[in-house]
Amino acid sequence: MMKRLILTRHAKSSWDDPTMSDHDRPLNERGKAAAADLGEWLASRGYVPGEVLCSDALRTRKTWSGIAPALPGSPELILKPALYHAGPDVMLAVLKHASADTVMMIGHNPGIAEFASRIVAQAPLNPEFQRYPTGATLVVSFEAPSWQGLDWHSGSVRDFIVPKEIAA
């Protein structure tokens, strides 16, 4: 049985209002465009999640809102407050409770970058992988009957993209 993870860092957010809480920051215009581009990219490659595990921050929810229209079907969105600025161990624990064969997880740096580097057996050659900039998306496959048995360094990279590479 194959499991697939689509791991996305939220798109570029706005810093226009310095009084706004970090949790409530929206996407800026570049982030909105990048989210839509990511949706098109995912759809064009057949990377369609059955469920989406998403931090409850506004910028992660808006990233999903930008991606979703390009994807067929209606993947279930599950807001996970534990993913807000989560470290890799928390992210792995959340993923182990997933039920769909293809799961998208939308989160934040620095945790998502560390999670990405620890979940794959071999990192992609893309120099942006270690930095995991806004909108970075990793697609990883696992030879596993369930998410519960997942462990570090067990994933095979299928794809990795950052929004500026889509628009190029």
Rank of each mutant, 00 (worst) to 15 (best):
M2N: 10
M2F: 06
K3R: 15
R4H: 05
L5S: 07
T8F: 00
H10D: 05
S13M: 12
S14E: 09
W15A: 10
D16P: 01
M20W: 07
D24N: 14
D24E: 15
R25K: 10
R25A: 15
N28W: 14
R30Y: 01
A33S: 13
A36M: 03
A36I: 09
L38Y: 02
L38D: 02
E40A: 14
L42A: 09
A43W: 01
S44T: 13
R45C: 02
G46N: 10
Y47A: 03
Y47R: 05
Y47E: 11
V48A: 08
P49C: 03
L53F: 13
C54M: 14
A57F: 00
L58H: 06
K62G: 00
T63E: 11
G66A: 14
A68G: 05
P69S: 13
E76A: 13
K80M: 13
Y84K: 01
H85K: 01
H85Q: 09
A86N: 01
D89Q: 07
D89N: 10
L92W: 03
A93Y: 00
L95P: 05
L95D: 04
L95V: 14
H97M: 08
S99G: 10
S99R: 15
D101K: 08
T102W: 13
T102F: 12
V103L: 13
M104C: 09
M105E: 03
G107A: 14
G111T: 11
G111W: 11
I112D: 12
A113M: 08
A113H: 12
A113Q: 08
A116V: 02
R118T: 01
V120S: 06
A121P: 00
A121Q: 07
A121K: 09
P124R: 10
L125V: 04
P127F: 08
Y132A: 11
L138F: 02
V139Y: 04
V139D: 09
V140Q: 03
F142L: 15
W147Y: 14
W147A: 15
G149R: 04
L150A: 13
L150C: 13
D151H: 14
W152A: 06
W152P: 02
S154K: 11
G155P: 06
F160E: 10
I161Y: 01
E165S: 08
A167E: 08
